[in-house]
Amino acid sequence: MIETRNVTKIYKLGDTDVIGAKEINLKIEEGEFLSIMGPSGSGKSTLLYLIGGLDKPTSGDVLIDGVNIVEMEERALCEVRRDKIGFIFQEFNLISTLTAIENTLVPLIPMGVSDDGMARGMKLLESFGLKDRIDHLPGQLSGGQQQRVAIARALINEPEIVLADEPTGELDTKSGDELIQLMEKMNRREGVTFIIVTHDPVVSEKTRRTIFLKDGEIVKD
């Protein structure tokens, strides 16, 4: 379902070339619950952004459902991100002026929020234990609650894939555990593929497959 073929990403930092990803060949099947581990600067986030179509590789192809997203135009790529992929960020990236339900519905806003969308947003927040926090602003929520809102936002469009970049990085152990359990539940119940970037072995132990990266290369799968 997701395939990377000889994906290389080189960044320019002044006169220096920095390798973010090097000849990465990877296949991820539908419904996988996978983690990507590695030290800082190993290229974990780079790989995640390349898979998610947020960045273009210097060379190589990224295929989602057999379609090479590297060759896609900006508009089509946006649609892929909107319809097929959900993103979860380390710092939650919620919009501070919007409530929990409004943040959940943000991906739908440009096309219009239907009653179905609203109902799904409410249902997601309720199932994540945020029923009485629906009208709260991010500043009024704990870190764990904010990240649950971020997961709801990632799932609002019923995506096939959720890409999580250090989702537990800003959370305490208990909240982190709850979050991973929540993602696992969504993976089992809804069949959503989860790719989780983490440097926490406790998190990776809970995933069914772990890829280790070092200096932009896969060293263990």
């Binding site: 919007l98 943000v106 219009g112 929020v113 969308g117």
Partner: peptide, 24 residues
Amino acid sequence: MISRGRTGNMKMRHMAYRNLLGRM
């Protein structure tokens, strides 16, 4: 995928107002 309604502009406007009010 979630079906989409016709309230897009209203919601976008709503978000713009919330952004303005939130950064008073």
